[in-house]
Amino acid sequence: MGTTWRTFDWPGAALVAAATLGALALGAFLSPGSDDPWYGALRKAPLNPPDAAFAVIWPVLFLLMLAGALLVLQEAGNFKRASAAMGLYFTMLAANVCWSLFFFGFSDPGIALGVLAALWLLIATMILRFAIHSPRAALLQVPYLLWVTFAAYLNISVLVLNPAP
């Protein structure tokens, strides 16, 4: 199908961009890293990256997410034709923020792990749905799926290394 940039769904793209940037900002606000006394005191996985790595990785992943979503929107021609893919995308953004809320906000890595499992399934499903419109858009989501897989290792490690009293 596809569309030219002149007939591109700019209002839909603005909504996707605003939601993506909003989720990135909210997730960053909710995730203080080692500045959080609770998180700073936790025993962590041997492969736990330094806080500075998260500050680089997350914006790159969100840029890839946004680029993929915009490719889907462009190839679909409008937001309505991409509604299934966009619905998954917005749900995925919400789940991403919910992980930060449960892990850092509520200091509950157990519930956060459940959210992370749901997020992983959402991303995998979103990749399949994106591929219908744009294989490139789907491929752009693979680093995010891999990162969330690694995040599960980190989350599980926190649970195992810091048993509840």
Rank of each mutant, 00 (worst) to 15 (best):
L88C: 09
G27H: 08
A17M: 13
I156D: 00
S34Y: 07
N78L: 06
L88W: 15
L113I: 12
A55Y: 09
M86F: 08
Y144N: 03
V142F: 03
L30A: 08
A124V: 11
G87K: 06
A25C: 09
L63W: 11
H133W: 07
G22N: 08
M92D: 12
Y153F: 14
P109T: 08
H133I: 01
V158H: 03
D36C: 09
L15S: 05
L145Y: 00
A13K: 11
A124G: 13
Y89A: 03
N96V: 06
I57S: 10
W10S: 08
R6E: 14
L159Y: 00
L122H: 01
A151G: 11
L159F: 05
L154Q: 05
A67K: 13
S134F: 00
P37C: 05
W58L: 03
A55K: 15
I111G: 04
I132F: 02
L26C: 10
L140S: 08
L88D: 01
W10K: 12
F103H: 02
A41P: 11
Y144A: 01
F90L: 15
A95H: 00
F102W: 14
W120S: 05
Y89W: 03
S107K: 15
A69T: 00
E75F: 09
P32Y: 06
L73G: 03
G12S: 08
L154G: 02
W58T: 01
I127H: 04
F150N: 12
F102S: 06
N155G: 09
S31I: 07
C98W: 12
I156N: 02
S31D: 01
W38C: 14
R136G: 00
W120E: 04
A82K: 03
A25V: 09
L146T: 13
N155T: 12
L61E: 02
D108N: 15
H133T: 00
P50Q: 04
V16E: 00
Y39W: 07
A85E: 06
F79P: 00
S34K: 03
A118V: 14
M86D: 07
F150H: 08
R136H: 10
R43E: 12
L26W: 06
R43V: 12
H133A: 05
A19M: 12
L116N: 08
G12E: 01
T20K: 11
T7M: 14
S83V: 07
A137S: 07
W147T: 10
Y144S: 00
A19Y: 05
L24R: 04
V115E: 04
I132Q: 09
H133S: 05
K80D: 12
L66E: 04
L161W: 07
L88P: 06
V160G: 10
Y39D: 14
W99K: 04
A124K: 06
A131P: 13
W147R: 10
L161R: 15
R136L: 13
S107L: 09
G12C: 04
L21V: 15
P109V: 07
I156Q: 04
S34N: 09
L122S: 04
L73W: 11
P37Q: 06
L101T: 14
L146W: 01
G114S: 09
L64E: 05
L146C: 15
M126K: 03
L88I: 04
A76E: 04
S34F: 01
F79D: 07
F90N: 11
V60R: 01
L101D: 03
L71P: 05
G110K: 09
Q74R: 14
D108R: 10
V60A: 15
V72G: 01
M126I: 11
D51C: 05
P37W: 02
F62E: 01
